[in-house]
Amino acid sequence: MSLEVTHTDGFAEDWQARILNGPPLIAPARQYVFPLAVPGEEDALARGAMWMEIKPATGGVFLAQCALGFAGKGVTTGVWSTPRPSLLLAVAGGYGYLVDTNDPDQTELLPMRPVVSVHPAPQVDALVLIGFHSAYILTAGEAWQSPKLSWEGVAVTGIEGDTLHGTGWHMPSDKELPFTLNLRTQELIGGGCQP
C-alpha cells in the first residue's frame, strides 16, 4: 500500500503522519488498534489494516493500526488533514477514523460506512466524505450527515463556494438527478431521493 497523506491547503496541522506498508520492525512504545470494541466488528482486523506512524504536537510518536472496512475496490483509503489542527482523518478500506493525535484513546469510528471519496472544502472549513447514499461533513465545530442524496451512488461534480454539487440516482425514473447541498446551512435541493 503506497499512500500519501493529503495536506489540505487552509487546514492547519499540529501533527505529522506517515502511512506504512505494514507493521514496523521496531514499533514505538505507544500503539493503538482501531476500531475499539464495536459490536459486529469483532473480526475487522482479519480483512487487513492500514498502519500509520503519527507524531503529535506533544508527546511521543505512536503507531495506529486501522482495520480495513472492505478489501475491494470502490472505497477509499488514505489520511487527510481536517479543519481541527489536532485531528486527522484516516480512511482504511472505506472505514473512517477521526484520530485525536493528542489523545488517541478518543479516536472515533465514523458512522458513514463505507466512505467512497473525500473532498476538502477549505473555503467553508469543511471536509466532505461521500458514501453510497449521502454525505458526511466534518467541520471545526461539528459533524453532520446530509439527507439521502441517492438510492445508490453519489457523484460529486464540484464544490463552489459553500455549495456541493453532484448527482444521485433516482430509482423510479432510473435517472441521475442533480443536487446542491449548502455546506453551511445544510439545505439540500434536488437529488435522487427528493420528491
Rank of each mutant, 00 (worst) to 15 (best):
S2C: 02
H7I: 13
T8W: 08
T8L: 10
D9H: 12
E13A: 09
D14A: 04
Q16E: 13
R18T: 11
P23S: 03
L25E: 15
Y32E: 13
F34I: 10
P35I: 04
G40F: 01
E41I: 00
E42W: 01
D43Q: 13
G48A: 04
G48P: 06
W51V: 14
E53V: 01
P56L: 05
A57G: 07
A57W: 01
G59E: 13
V61R: 15
L63P: 14
L63V: 12
L68Y: 06
F70G: 06
A71T: 10
G72R: 06
G74I: 14
V75M: 06
T77R: 14
V79Q: 02
R84S: 10
S86E: 15
S86R: 14
L87Q: 08
V91E: 06
G93L: 12
V99A: 01
T101Y: 07
T101N: 10
N102W: 06
P104V: 05
P104I: 05
L109V: 00
L110W: 00
P111W: 00
M112N: 04
R113T: 04
V115T: 12
H119L: 06
V124N: 03
D125L: 09
A126D: 06
I130A: 13
H133L: 10
A140Q: 14
A140H: 14
G141C: 07
W144F: 14
S146R: 01
P147H: 01
E152I: 13
T157P: 13
G158A: 08
E160Q: 14
E160F: 02
G161K: 08
G161R: 06
D162K: 11
L164D: 09
T167W: 00
M171I: 10
P172D: 07
K175L: 07
E176I: 04
N182L: 13
L183R: 01
R184F: 00
E187M: 06
E187V: 11
I189W: 00
C193G: 05
